[in-house]
């Protein structure tokens, strides 16, 4: 079922190189203290790569897409342009979603003691690199 879903979406969005994206996620885990996991998904909610420490990535990617939809509508309706990031704080930690180019997002999970300034800094940079990976994948697909 999952495989069939992926093949279906592959027609619309190019297949991203999972190892490259996964190494970005692993790099973030190594550099940002209190980061507990993360995933990269397409804006329509399909997992590209995940490092979620036991949490179920498909469900989280789908929820990310839903939150992204509401978040980007809210930011556009209030006249603040396109979606860039979304931070949610709970009793026991944070979830943060960052736009990585036009059709990919990076979602990270962090503990309550996380340095949010640092999280933003590292995640924005990683988002830029993931966007470049996605753009390269799109170009490759257009050529073939």
């Amino acid at each position: 079922m999952k495989r069939a879903l992926r093949q279906f979406t592959a027609k619309r969005t190019p297949a991203l190189p999972e190892p490259e994206v996964l190494s970005e996620l692993r790099g973030l885990r190594a550099t940002v203290p209190h980061l507990t996991g993360g995933l990269v998904a397409t804006t329509d909610g399909l997992v590209v790569a995940h490092d979620t420490n036991g949490l179920e990535p498909e469900g989280l990617a789908a929820l990310t897409a839903a939150a992204l939809g509401v978040g980007s509508r809210l930011i556009e309706a209030s006249g603040q342009g396109g979606f860039r990031e979304l931070l949610t704080r709970g009793e026991h930690g944070y979830t943060a979603t960052y736009a990585a180019g036009g059709y990919v997002v990076l979602t990270l999970f962090a503990g309550p003691d996380a340095n949010v300034g640092r999280l933003h800094f590292e995640a924005r940079r990683a988002g830029g690199r993931i966007a470049a990976i996605a753009d390269a994948a799109l170009e490759r697909q257009d050529r073939s």
Partner: peptide, 29 residues
């Protein structure tokens, strides 16, 4: 800077050569 979150409550100066929001996050550590 709030060192619970690593975010700056206010900044003045810095400019291109010193990003104070990055400095806030880094010096929180």
């Amino acid at each position: 800077v709030d060192y619970n979150s690593g975010m700056a409550l206010g900044t003045i100066g810095g400019g291109a050569e010193l990003d104070l929001n990055v400095a806030a996050a880094g010096n929180t550590d």
